[in-house]
Design a protein around this nucleic acid. Structure first.
Lengths: 163, 163
DNA sequence: ATGCTTGCAAAACGTTTGCACAGGG
DNA sequence: CCCTGTGCAAACGTTTTGCAAGCAT
């Protein structure tokens, strides 16, 4: 039921990043390219730390400061999307060509189920129009219990306040 | 257009908190009561720090640790709701008797517009059902430009990555 | 050659925790 | 009375920043 990640073409992303950097007069450096390469190899959701660790294993050392400075660029140019599952740390995911989708987070096992729904976009547009709001993006996140956990744990109330 | 905050009755909230504490065998202390009182006097959204600061001005000193330990209790008993506008800090708001609503955040001026829509709940239920997910809560947050800012700033792209 | 980028280390930030004492049940 | 709750300060982990050196343009 969950969306099949149709990963974006790495070469296309690299080219897009290059164009983005040039258009903004930001330098196309090896460190930034390496961050992109690592990120393109990742599946699902990750955090800044994951990228830093993977870069440690690579040929060159890329500091975590650079990772923290590069990830926003990748978000800005549309290659990455920022997602917030908790308020502890920032999570990212590949944007997959911009195919919109949202998340359901299981409060018990932490599992993340993705879903895509045109209705979310419709509704978002309708609401924005009603309030004279120029909508650019949204975040729609359900929290609750996944199928397995709802069986294992009949008591619905878990992790207070994480809605 | 935005929802009129029908604030909950303070006395009722205090009573609800007392019942909650008793039911969980958590002590009904003066510090916790003072946190609740300050919180009930706040309008709109606030963060842990706001509560701590206001408590400093009061008769007794309540440490920020106590605030951080008490706010989750208030969330758990339904008096407060946790909202995340950014990943920097946690924000809270009065639950107003549980009347559900969501937020639109202006990327330019930071203004927060609230909206309530039954359709969000319907959609959420429908999606959860499709994915065999037992939904407990949700967060639906639009980001973009409010009316004033969309006129003042015709360029739609602002604050990269805050979608 | 210029000045944006880098890595490192250290700061900053909100939040959590360890502790000895206070206070509610 | 006991055990939980409290305040303080120090710890925590993520993210940011200051700096001298490096490198793309």
């Amino acid at each position: 039921m969950s969306i099949r990640p149709n990963k974006p073409d790495p070469d296309e992303s690299r080219e897009a990043f290059r164009r983005y950097l040039r258009s903004r007069h930001i330098k196309d450096t090896s460190a930034r390219r390496e961050v992109l390469d690592v990120v393109l190899g990742l599946k699902g959701h990750f955090q800044a730390d994951d990228v830093t660790d993977l870069l440690k294993g690579g040929s060159r050392t890329v500091g975590k400061a650079t990772v923290y400075r590069t990830l926003p660029l990748l978000v800005d140019c549309g290659i990455l999307k920022r997602v917030h599952f908790d308020m502890k740390r920032a999570h990212f995911e590949l944007a997959r060509g911009g195919e919109p989708h949202d998340h359901m987070v299981c409060r018990r096992c932490g599992r993340i189920v993705e879903f895509a729904s045109d209705e979310v976009l419709e509704l978002r547009g309708r609401i924005a129009r009603e309030h004279h709001f120029h909508v650019i993006g949204h975040r729609f996140q359900l929290s609750g219990l996944c199928w397995e956990c709802s069986i294992a744990c009949p008591v619905a109330k878990i992790a207070p306040g994480s809605a």
